[in-house]
Design a protein around this nucleic acid. Structure first.
Length: 416
RNA sequence: GUGACUGUAGCUCAGCUGGUAGAGCGCCUGACUGUGGAUCAGGUGGUCGCGGGUUCGAAUCCCGCCAGUCACCCCA
């Protein structure tokens, strides 16, 4: 038997409804804030990610799906969404459109990692990007959007963490301070951290083995230049003004090379080790680094799988859509009438299903019950003669004759 | 990439110290020729993850591989 590829998932049944809800709610919310959708290819030149995500990052060094196409080009399946959107922004000269340009997107991303709870090789992200404004208001808006969105799904065990990692002007001093601090504790570091010390000092902060050392390490906020400091202060003020609760987390550094100033993350308390459902921040230099005009930008990405896991952890229900009705005939001679009534119901805005197995009336009732229909319309000789329908409420068992034209008002909406 | 645990029907699992597969649930049909999730009866369904080895004989023991789960790394 051919099985699905490691780290990929088939989404079906109840899960598919959940996913649809998570995605459509996001689209609604992003549109409300004035964002427009952008769909970029899943395939990009591998070089794009090497230059944006960073040559030295794990994502590029060992997690990218790369292949050579028949024309000998090095192609990658996108490991994240931002790079492709920046590429599209530059390629289409969008910097000459009105600023800011605000985009939302969603779709599959690919990273060759070992799967675990909340981590797949093909995973799905939804997110936004704002181009053309250096203002902390942009950071505040997209952070607020992400947080409000997650709350609107019903999630409550959320915590928002923010930080600033400065800019190329002030970050070197901070990095130096960290290096000094850790150099005095080299022998206390775990093996992974010894590597981090050489490779990327900032990441020493999120070591899980020894958190005490990181707790008392120098804080990036204390090293910010004046511009970065003002930026951060204003972000904090705007979040407060919008009534968004957050904590300043000086240990929050993000893994992708392109971040500047603002970084943020939203964690969920009901998940396993992979507890970040959303993350992002500002990347003021990426557009220029990829060959575009110098353009400040900010954005976030949220993991759909993790959102879904979080919703399951909180046992959240989703609102039902259309009221569903099953239409049965007492025998095969009613077939035409059954089809007609089902079409009428669909026309009226209901979901209507009919038997496709040529089953007996009782078997059809059984099917309707198994599929959780709350209403069944029954058609037989008697109904046909009198121009009525029998409408059965499957929850109460109550059944009554209804004139054909009155179906709509007799079927009430209810919540699942 | 590293580590731990796991792999028998669609699902959950049983199968003791080796004698070549079972249950419950599900699914289909019927009891129920105009009425359901309950009950009863029948039916459907398995290369015992894959490949080697040991043995007269392997789901059971050994090795390798693959897959799954969780954690590390990293990240959404």
């Amino acid at each position: 038997m051919i099985k699905r590829i490691k780290g990929t998932e088939d989404i079906y049944g109840e899960d598919a409804s959940l996913w649809r809800f998570v995605e459509s709610r996001f689209v609604e919310m992003a549109l409300k804030y004035g964002y427009q959708e952008i769909r970029t290819p899943i395939l990009e030149h591998a070089e794009l990610f090497v230059r944006s995500v960073g040559e030295e990052t794990d994502i590029v060094r060992k997690e990218m799906y790369i292949f050579e196409d028949r024309g000998g080009r090095k192609i990658a399946l996108r490991p994240e969404g931002t790079a492709g959107i920046v590429r599209a922004y530059i390629e289409h000269g969008m910097s000459s459109l009105v600023s800011p340009q605000k985009f939302f997107y969603m779709g599959p991303m690919f990273r060759y990692e070992k799967p675990q709870a909340g981590r797949q090789r093909q995973f799905h992200q939804l997110g936004v990007e704002i181009f053309g404004t250096p203002s902390p208001s942009a950071d505040a808006e997209m952070i607020a959007l992400s947080f409000r969105y997650l709350k609107s799904l019903g999630l409550s065990q959320l915590s928002l963490h923010i930080n600033s990692i400065g800019c190329p002007k002030c970050r070197p001093a901070y990095r130096e301070a960290l290096k000094n601090y850790y150099s005095e504790h080299l022998d206390e570091l775990c093996d992974d951290c010894k590597v981090r010390y050489e490779k990327n000092v900032l990441r020493l902060l999120d070591c899980k083995v020894d958190t005490k050392l990181a707790d008392s390490a120098p804080r990036s906020l204390d090293f910010l230049c004046e511009e970065c400091r003002n930026h951060f202060d204003q972000l904090v003020n705007e979040l407060k003004a919008m009534g968004i609760e957050f904590v300043i987390d000086h240990k929050l550094v993000r893994g992708l090379d392109y971040y500047t100033r603002t970084t943020f993350e939203i964690k969920h308390g009901g998940l396993g080790a992979q507890d970040a459902v959303c993350g992002g921040g500002r990347y003021d230099n990426l557009v220029e680094e990829l060959g575009g005009r110098s353009t400040p930008a900010t954005g976030f990405a949220a993991g759909v799988e993790r959102i879904v896991l979080a919703m399951k952890a909180e046992k959240l229900r989703i609102p039902v859509g259309m009221e569903r009705v099953f239409v049965v005939g007492t025998d095969s001679s009613m077939r035409t009438e059954v089809l007609k009534v089902a079409e009428e119901l669909r026309e009226l805005g209901f979901a209507a299903e009919v038997d496709l197995m040529e089953r007996s009336l009782s078997a059809q009732m059984k099917y309707a019950a198994r599929k959780n229909y709350s209403y069944v319309v029954i058609l037989g000789e008697e109904e046909l003669k009198s121009g009525t329908l029998s409408l059965k409420n499957m929850e109460t068992g109550e059944q009554r004759r209804v004139p054909r034209g009155k179906l709509k008002e007799k079927i009430r909406r209810n919540e699942r």
